[in-house]
Design a protein around this nucleic acid. Sequence first.
DNA 1: ATAGCTTTGTGTCAATTTTACACTATCCAA
DNA 2: TTGGATAGTGTAAAATTGACACAAAGCTAT
Lengths: 251, 251
Amino acid sequence: MQHNLKKINSELNPNVSVDCVIFGFDLEQLTVLLIDRGEISSAFGPRLALPGNLIYDNENLDMAANRVLAELTGLKNIYLEQVRAFGDPDRIHKEADREWLKSIRAEPEARVITVAYYTLVPMSDYIPQAASFAKNADWVPVNLIKELAFDHYEILQAAKDKLKQKIKIQPIGFNLLPEKFTLSQLHRLYESILEKPLDKRNFRRKIQKLDILTSLREKQRGVPHKPSSLYEFNEEKYQELTQTGFDNFGF
Amino acid sequence: MQHNLKKINSELNPNVSVDCVIFGFDLEQLTVLLIDRGEISSAFGPRLALPGNLIYDNENLDMAANRVLAELTGLKNIYLEQVRAFGDPDRIHKEADREWLKSIRAEPEARVITVAYYTLVPMSDYIPQAASFAKNADWVPVNLIKELAFDHYEILQAAKDKLKQKIKIQPIGFNLLPEKFTLSQLHRLYESILEKPLDKRNFRRKIQKLDILTSLREKQRGVPHKPSSLYEFNEEKYQELTQTGFDNFGF
DNA sequence: ATAGCTTTGTGTCAATTTTACACTATCCAA
DNA sequence: TTGGATAGTGTAAAATTGACACAAAGCTAT
């Protein structure tokens, strides 16, 4: 066997990982999919972490993010957008994190930079109980998160910021909702992403003007108040819109 | 000597590099600072590349970008903003690039992901002739660039896009101008960043309303036309503005 | 000195967009 | 039937945008 400077394909690269910030929306608030790392770490610090892992030497970053996400949650073929790279050499400094890495990595002390991705999925795409292979992933309301493993809290904040920006430029929020939804739900969604209240009437007017909603002849049932009508997302118009691009959807 | 899995501090990390997109403005058009790689590569492909290099294992990415920039151009203490990571395993596929790497790197075949940064500097901060240590860096008008080494052309485009976005949200363009400048120069700057014409009167109106310019009692001299008055950038007001944040500076 | 070239600097009006704001309608539960 | 909850709706004032043209000031060449 020769000098092994040139790495074999399909070998893990000990220096580069990807982490995924998967946003959901429970119709009340923004949530994010986190991995419970279990007892090993709980004695020291936060049990929760973003789904992430080292990349292989022969895969590009986008593919790696997709693979890791699939491995940890079963979510497949999700379009993930890059947030940015995080590369503080000290980003893994908590004792619990070091311990945990020892249990799962060949080179736990290697310096790792990570590339963060984010995306939006309907929460129904991932249901914890049903995902047997999932390593204890679960949705957690973003507001309740006070700390995470490694520098994942910082990553989460960066992803939130990116999302805030993005939603002003593209109508991405729809990815978070079920097929049929109400304008109020959409309204709450925007408010929880932007973290500020939006005037109801003005919001509705603005959304309607985008002309990407199809009003269904259907209403909510069983709610203890006036039922709201349901809408669908008009994919065709949406495509047009993102093609031509619209500069300003400022809230 | 022991098994050397744990890397020594201050060792180059063969897997991670940084590249810097340094924008300037020659009062006519947007420019970018490129390194001439010289004859070694010219037989095969583009001689020009972004300033960049591998990071050390013990430095964070932002610091690495700053160090590399200083080493290659002498520019110091520049605030660099991250664009994103680029990690296609095939991003170094041109023959010329491989040859060049062999001449400067210990592990030329290692898979490298790179983290791109960008910033804006007044062109007067870097003057090629004066920089003896600089490895043939020079300003090149962005419009003239058709190809670059590695995937640097793609990186440049991504940096341009980021800049376009950013300038709609923050008045960063001022970093590119000399201390005293005219509104026409600022106008041209915005046009060349946004790559579209802007109505002169409307532009001026909008800028003035920001209230971050101080009109000097001074005019251009020696120009073969009506001299324009010079302005200074009012740092105090600017700070206020970025603090409070302004959502919409849409052109 | 003057004619010609070049760029600066300025205002208005119409159309659009934004903001602020309050009451009735509809369903369920008690 | 009443009370509680949320849905749904319009308008007027203010601010912003977009389109557009001409006189003023300096230099140069004659």
